[in-house]
């Protein structure tokens, strides 16, 4: 049994310790918001927060997460109201939407560490996440928009 905390909930997982966190989340816990895109840490669709860091869950074994805190897209905010989620909705970022969980989880770490990122910061932080629909321009705008929301009391 491996104990993990996901979105504030404790789980004891009975799985191969080598199973990537991605498949534990998706197939065992039914948290399908985290996506499988490449299985090789190339695309970022599987990004979740492990103790606050934007790890690629497709290459992160459940073993590494033992006793740790995991946040997935389902637990990023209580009511789809993280500033990034609000901005994503306002700017209509997603097209197919498949990569967007990972995009938002990556952007959340950027904003937490740099509340007012420049375009260069966004290039640096977000180039690990692929969007085949090509929503990059809108992701950029939405990150700026979310950054602008923060002084108005939005919490990260």
């Amino acid at each position: 049994m491996i104990s993990i905390t996901v979105n504030g909930q404790h789980h004891d997982i009975d799985a191969d310790p080598n199973m990537p966190l991605l498949w534990v989340l998706r197939d065992i816990l039914g948290l399908t918001g985290t996506k499988f895109g490449c299985g090789a840490a190339q695309c970022g669709a599987c990004t979740v927060h492990l103790n606050g860091e934007a790890v690629r869950s497709c290459v992160t074994k459940i073993n590494r997460a033992a006793g740790q805190n995991i946040v997935t897209i389902e637990g990023l905010s209580d009511n789809n109201n993280h500033p990034l989620q609000l901005a994503w909705n306002e700017i209509s970022v997603p097209q197919c939407g498949y990569c967007q969980s990972g995009q938002i989880m990556s952007a959340a770490v950027l904003l937490r560490e740099n509340p007012n990122p420049t375009d260069q910061d966004i290039d640096d932080a977000m180039s690990g996440n692929i969007c085949r629909c090509g929503t990059y321009q809108r992701i950029r705008s939405a990150i700026h928009k979310a950054a602008a929301m923060q002084p108005e009391g939005a919490k990260l």
Binding site: T32, G33, T34, E74, L76, W88, N89, P94, Y98
Partner: peptide, 18 residues
């Protein structure tokens, strides 16, 4: 605004793999 956006920002939208 697209009506499918909210469910694509909180992991609710069901894709084939889900």
């Amino acid at each position: 605004n697209r009506m499918d956006t909210p469910m694509k920002t909180n992991g609710v939208a069901i894709f084939g793999l889900d």
